[in-house]
Computed example of a mutant assay.
Amino acid sequence: MTDAGAAADDGGGNTWLTRSGLLLAVVLLVGVAGTGIVRRQLGLLGYNQVGRLVFLLGYGGTILIVWYGWLRPLDISGPSDEDVTYGDDEE
């Protein structure tokens, strides 16, 4: 891998479209739009119930993949008790 590819991977570069961002966009596109298109085509062919199942599994799978890959690793906790200061401690 080249240095330019490594800079794009860690988000430290000046580009807004990283490999992780591109993968997220593809997962969302396939998971939402792709399963919606497949569901519609199955409905047109007379397999409406199968189409609903495909859409539910695809959409639900997309939610789980996005949560596991991008949301779960985020540290969204607040400050710990040691980091919190109340008022002026200099006496």
Rank of each mutant, 00 (worst) to 15 (best):
G61N: 04
G46V: 01
A6E: 02
V66Q: 05
G21K: 05
W67Y: 14
L56F: 14
S80W: 07
E90I: 11
G31L: 02
G21W: 03
G87A: 03
G69N: 08
G43I: 07
D10R: 06
R72S: 11
I76C: 03
L44D: 14
G61P: 03
I65S: 10
D88Q: 05
D83T: 05
G46D: 00
N14L: 07
S20T: 08
G60C: 04
T15H: 14
M1R: 04
D10W: 04
V30N: 03
E82C: 02
R72C: 00
L22M: 06
P79A: 15
P79N: 09
L24T: 06
A4S: 13
V32C: 12
V84P: 00
G21N: 08
Y86G: 01
W70E: 05
L24E: 11
G51I: 06
G43H: 05
I37A: 09
R39C: 15
V38M: 11
L44K: 15
L44N: 14
D75H: 13
V66R: 05
G87M: 02
G87K: 03
E91G: 11
A25P: 00
G43Y: 06
N48D: 15
A25E: 04
L53R: 06
G21A: 09
W70K: 04
L74S: 09
L57Y: 09
W70M: 00
Q49T: 15
L28S: 07
R72V: 02
W67V: 11
R52G: 15
Q41T: 07
G58E: 04
D89P: 07
F55I: 01
V50A: 13
T2E: 01
I65R: 06
I76M: 10
D75G: 06
L53I: 12
G43S: 08
V30L: 14
S77V: 09
G78C: 04
I63N: 07
E90G: 00
D81S: 15
G60H: 01
E91K: 10
N14A: 14
R72D: 10
G12C: 09
E90W: 10
I63K: 05
T85H: 09
G13I: 00
A25D: 08
A33S: 13
A6P: 01
V54F: 07
V38D: 03
D9T: 01
V32P: 10
T62R: 03
V30F: 09
G87P: 02
E90L: 12
Y68Q: 11
R40W: 14
I76G: 08
L44A: 12
V66S: 05
L45R: 13
I37Y: 05
R19N: 14
